[in-house]
Design a protein around this nucleic acid. Structure first.
Lengths: 226, 226
DNA sequence: TCCGTCGTCAACTGCTCAATTGAATGCGTG
DNA sequence: CACGCATTCAATTGAGCAGTTGACGACGGA
């Protein structure tokens, strides 16, 4: 039956997506783009690749329809195509975490477990933030904050934190977050804040997990997404 | 900082998983294994590959920790490693459906849209089944049914359906399901049942989607998973 | 309008992977 | 204890991808 033939013609298309995910460089680019759109040169700098190589990988991702590109003045800005792509990347990471022992080893050596006992979970954050018992602190780089952040969060990039401590309250717990599971900005921030006498913990996960779960967000100054 | 180096050493591991997903043959094997465990020869037959080739691809999947293998008598049975792998495969399919126009084209030519207006959604099925207003019918191959099925479903493999129509009620709606989104068993079954005067519709999705969402299931005769 | 900058394309090399064939391994059975 | 079957391994071929270098194209600013 040709139904069979048609159905089998689907798999090569899905395999195209798999092929796009088969390179560590491209996954790194996807991870960066999951935080905020960026132009090629920035992606090259942040990933440590040559511009030409970065461009090639971006073409591959674009052909697999995982990212979109559009010109902004002289530059070309790339962004994640869709929230389903972010979910795919999280699903891939989840399989790696649960199934690849090497990933668990590296995670342990990153010290990501040390503070595990003291994390606030995402489902609790909205309530705690709403009743004013905590302050939510975003310590990601500025342009990622501007592209979108947890609704109501205070925005202080990690490299400005030390000089802006006077903006933070000493009578409330501070919950810091950054890009996501493997990002250390929030851990570093929590360490600093504690040394200075603040009551600080990090959020379980980060912007990526928050957004994919459809929790309330806002961008720059205007509000979106109830 | 070596934190950076450690973090970057994660990506190659995730890319291993991506590489395992980069072949249409392997995705077909994964899709089959997502229904029920199988031995190599059965997988080779169902996928139309040589046994040696099938075995090689299974090794690749096993090295990426996406499937597990264990001996059963003279044979080696392969099964999906984890439910997170099923979620990954669904996430991949979802990106393909929303982003690849070719996939949408093929889906349309499969006629999967024709009956879309008449599908029962998964979140409604439990309720309808519990209060006895419908009968849930599983038309997948027998050994897939035995490995697990929707709790309370009636099990009639598609190739036995015509000869077992007397087991089905004429005073209740029948909701048929099969493997999942791209599987046609349920569509064929619904057509047949309607020709014979039954009130039949198909379920939106199938076993794969049902299981991944954690809905009630049972295996063979014994019950599990509340 | 011309120049400088940003990004892409083309060509090339080294490597990895898919599939085939044929041989070897390991298990259950007689 | 050896035979037979299911599966895996080894070796080979051809195709395809990663990364570099250098040239080209497109846009904004002066």
């Amino acid at each position: 039956m040709d139904h069979r033939a048609l159905k089998d013609s689907l798999y090569p298309h899905f395999a195209r997506i798999g092929a796009a995910l088969a390179s560590d460089r491209r996954l790194e680019l996807l991870n960066l783009l999951a935080q905020a759109p960026r132009h090629v040169e920035a992606l090259a700098a942040e990933s440590g690749m040559s511009v030409a190589n970065t461009s090639q990988h971006l073409q591959t991702l674009k052909n697999a329809r995982l990212v979109d590109a559009h010109r902004v003045g002289a530059r070309v800005e790339y962004c994640l195509a869709d929230e389903s792509v972010a979910r795919l990347w999280l699903a891939l990471r989840d399989v790696g975490e649960t199934r690849l022992s090497e990933v668990a080893d590296i995670t342990r050596r990153l010290g990501l477990n040390d503070s595990r006992g003291e994390m606030v979970h995402r489902e609790d954050l909205e309530r705690l933030s709403a009743d004013g018992s905590i302050l939510v602190l975003d310590v990601r780089p500025r342009h990622e904050q501007e592209h979108g952040h947890v609704r109501g969060a205070t925005l202080i990039p990690h490299d400005e934190l030390e000089s802006r401590l006077d903006e933070l309250p000493r009578d409330r717990r501070i919950v810091a977050y950054c890009r996501g599971h493997y990002c250390l900005f929030a851990d570093v921030a929590v360490d600093l804040l504690r040394q200075r006498g603040f009551d600080a913990v990090r959020l379980d996960g980060g912007w990526l997990e928050w957004m994919v779960e459809g929790r309330p967000t806002e961008a720059a100054t205007s509000t979106e997404n109830a």
